[in-house]
Write a protein that binds this DNA or RNA. Structure first.
Lengths: 212, 212
DNA sequence: GGTATCTTGCACATCGCTGTGCAAGATATT
DNA sequence: AATATCTTGCACAGCGATGTGCAAGATACC
């Protein structure tokens, strides 16, 4: 029962323009999180009017954009598995940074802004693995036990976000951010600064690697 | 050359209404940071129209509100002096929490929102004393030295803000927040969780006291 | 009680934005 | 070359908000 009203396949440039709009939205919203459709369309080299040929509403565009980004991040973190919970947590933080650092502002907005609820559900897998790592870490004594696991999980997430925000305002080299986000997260779960630094230096998997 | 056009002094109820509007704005904006003048006026028992009898523009109202709050906080922190930088920092965090916890949301907006620049300048004294404490702490070896003092200062501020945000979404008893904000700040400057907890417990000035 | 001062309601202008309808033009596809 | 598919510009409606003018009413003040 698939609809078959059109005798001809959709044009290729249409699909390209759709992509261009999503890309433009990423750029614009990463500069000004409340950028208008006008601005986005212009960035894509299109008119505001034609946006509505691809997305029913502004929110649809936004949601799709966030969904794409969120899936990308979730996929990238899905492969993270390590027996040691501290290493696992640091790996999550480090991969997160790697995936998101180029769209820091938008990421912050997606998580904080009006789409927060939507985003949160998309990122649920990450929440879960962070929570797992923390419970494991509390259990084997490598992480602090003076705070509830659920609270600590949120604090860790917010700490990672904090580094993103900080680096939105005071730009940070990708490499420095990579180390900083791990340092902060490890500090958040209870490690002293020397321990955290030593821990990172001792673990080869946690070293910075240029992309590809 | 002071203007003397009015034969009569301003009415007292006018001044009261002005206060009422500020108070209402505090309440409303703390519930919904983008609340409209309509809502604020209603909360104050006035009409939207009469707001303009007291404040030229919405922004004026906002700015005055923020200025009042900021001054209150700055005054409260002005008295904090302690030879030990760790204690001083924890005291700043603790007093900050005490002053701000009842208007957490608004505080977050004032610092993050469009008035951020304005707010930042009002809070400059706090920035300075945090910065001082951190430089002192790095110098006497009680705080981490792997991060630049300026960066660390911002991270500490953001960490305090993080606790406010966390407690906006997942309410926290005033007393728990008081301890949490100190724990997080001490963790941020490099202490391990056991050290931070022990440090707080050992210092009488850092204990929770009910207000008045 | 007289009067300046506030408050109020209503109408209206404005602004920036989203979303639509439509007709004309451009272009990929066949 | 024919045609379905996109794009565009323009006009327009709508929404939610801020800000104003004005006249009528309420109220503190002397």
């Amino acid at each position: 029962m698939t609809t078959q009203p059109s005798v001809r396949a959709p044009r290729r440039d249409a699909a390209e323009n759709r992509e261009a709009l999503l890309a433009a939205a990423r750029v614009v919203l990463n500069r000004d999180p409340s950028g208008s459709l006008e601005t986005i369309a212009a960035e894509a080299g299109l008119s505001r009017r034609s946006v509505y040929g691809h997305f029913a509403t502004r929110d649809d565009l936004l949601r799709e954009l966030v969904a794409l980004g969120a899936n990308r991040v979730v996929d990238a973190l899905a492969t993270v598995t390590h027996p040691d919970p501290l290493t696992r947590l640091a790996l999550i933080a480090s991969n997160l940074w790697r995936e998101v650092e180029s769209v820091r502002m938008m990421a912050v907005v997606a998580v904080r802004g009006p789409l927060a609820k939507n985003t949160a559900s998309l990122l649920r897998p990450i929440r879960l693995s962070v929570g797992d790592a923390i419970r494991d870490g509390q259990h084997d004594g490598s992480m602090r036990t003076d705070l509830d696991a659920a609270l600590l999980t949120r604090l860790v997430e917010d700490t990672a976000l904090l580094v993103l925000e900080e680096s939105s305002e005071h730009p940070l080299a990708a490499r420095d951010g990579h180390r900083l986000v791990m340092l902060m997260v490890l500090g958040c779960v209870g490690l002293g600064w020397r321990d955290a630094g030593a821990f990172i230096d001792a673990e080869p998997e946690l070293q910075w690697k240029e992309r590809h």
